[in-house]
């Protein structure tokens, strides 16, 4: 129950954030790519939430405190570098997680097996852009460094074990660190040295403690649905 919510909410919330880019992307190819990733994540979210109950009731009628996503995915888009850094951190993690889940025989094996192919692309997309921005111009390098630094403190939560998700969390973490270190290095960026989470943020999202902007995101997302109780769309 909690496990499906946690993984489903991660995908739902990140999909929503990526959807906010529509019509604002820096180049037409990215309108297509960002929407593509958002759609993949939305598809995953719908499968996962449906394991728990009605997907729309869960997405539209829960209060902020009942969401179980990690704080990383709810962080505002910021500039393109922030969006890419957020995607890199998340996709590298999700790829490792889904690979393990797909290899097992648990209840998420089927969903993970399908999703892992999509996630490999998300990760490649984020990696390619991290390289271009990190090793592009001075400005893009600075922006990308600021973004990887700013989001670093939200990455610890990726490896807080989720009850019911039967994977080797320790291995996930070390593999993530290895991959991210490699990508940032090739992008001529510095791996942040600060803590991966503040004492109080570790696992906060999974317990329903979110950041301020998340409430506004939900207000926008849920407004129309909540304005017409019981209506079908």
């Amino acid at each position: 129950m909690t496990a499906a919510l946690a993984l489903g909410d991660d995908a739902l919330v990140l999909s929503h954030r990526l959807g906010e880019w529509a019509g604002h992307a820096p180049v037409l190819e990215e309108e297509v790519a960002l929407a593509n990733i958002a759609l993949d994540l939305l598809g995953q979210a719908r499968l996962l939430l449906s394991l728990v109950g009605d997907e729309d009731e869960l997405a539209y009628l829960r209060e902020e405190r009942a969401f179980r996503n990690i704080q990383l995915v709810e962080q505002p888009n910021g500039d393109f570098a922030h969006t890419i850094a957020r995607q890199l951190y998340f996709s590298v993690h999700q790829q490792g997680l889904y690979e393990q889940l797909a290899a097992g025989d648990g209840r998420f094996a089927g969903i993970a097996a399908k999703a892992v192919k999509e996630v490999a692309y998300h990760r490649d997309h984020a990696e390619q852009w991290t390289l271009r921005l990190g090793d592009g111009t001075d400005e893009s390098h600075q922006r990308m460094q600021r973004a990887v630094d700013a989001l670093w403190r939200f990455t610890g939560e990726l490896f807080q074990p989720v009850e019911g998700v039967d994977v080797d969390w320790q291995a996930l973490h070390s593999r993530w660190l290895e991959t991210v270190t490699d990508v940032l290095g090739r992008a001529t960026l510095t791996v942040p040295t600060g803590p991966q989470s503040g004492a109080w943020t570790a696992g906060a999202g999974r317990q329903g403690i979110h950041t301020e902007s998340f409430g506004r995101m939900l207000a926008e997302m849920q407004h129309l649905h909540r304005s017409h109780p019981g209506a079908s769309w």
Binding site: L12, H16, G19, E20, A22, G23, L28, E31, V32, A35, N36, A38, L39, L42, G43, A45, R46, L49, E55, D56, A59, Y60, E220, M221, H223, L224, H225, H228, A231, W233
Partner: peptide, 21 residues
């Protein structure tokens, strides 16, 4: 897109806007 009233409609709308790009 950010206010679509169901997840199904949201997926359809995102895919449509993507098609336009």
């Amino acid at each position: 897109i950010t206010r679509a009233p169901s997840l199904r409609r949201k997926a359809i709308l995102m895919a449509k806007v993507q098609d336009e790009a």
